[in-house]
C-alpha cells in the first residue's frame, strides 16, 4: 500500500487515488486545426519515464486533482502539489 499525500486532505492510501495523466500535456485546440497525429499524441502518447515522473492524479474521495512527483521504480513520492492556481484557494 503506497501512501500519497493529498494537498487538501493529507496522506491517504493509494486506493483513494486515480491516475489521470502525465503532467505537462496541453490540449491542442481548436479541433479543426489539430492534425490526427497531434491529437493522438495528446490522447495516447506517453513518456512513461523510468524514475522521476510528474503526473496528474485525482483524490477520489475529495475530488481534487493534484500534481504528484514520484519515482516509478522505487515508488518514492517526491512531491505532491495542488494544480497551478489551486493551492491558494485551499490554504
Amino acid at each position: 500500500m503506497q501512501i500519497f499525500p493529498c494537498p487538501f486532505c493529507g496522506p491517504r492510501d493509494e486506493t483513494e487515488f486515480h491516475f489521470a495523466a502525465e503532467a505537462g500535456k496541453h490540449r491542442p485546440e481548436p479541433a479543426p486545426e489539430v492534425t490526427d497525429t497531434a491529437w493522438s499524441d495528446y490522447l495516447y502518447g506517453a513518456d512513461a519515464p523510468k524514475g522521476r515522473a510528474r503526473e496528474v492524479w485525482v483524490h477520489l474521495t475529495c475530488g481534487e486533482f493534484l500534481l504528484l512527483t514520484r519515482d516509478t521504480v522505487t515508488r518514492e513520492v517526491l512531491d505532491a502539489a495542488a494544480l497551478p492556481g489551486r493551492g491558494e484557494a485551499a490554504t
Binding site: V56, V58, L60, G63, E64, L83, R86
Partner: peptide, 11 residues
C-alpha cells in the same frame, strides 16, 4: 461522469 466534470472544472 463526476470525474470528467471535476477535471475540466479544475484544469
Amino acid at each position: 461522469v463526476r470525474l470528467i466534470l471535476e477535471e475540466a472544472r479544475q484544469d
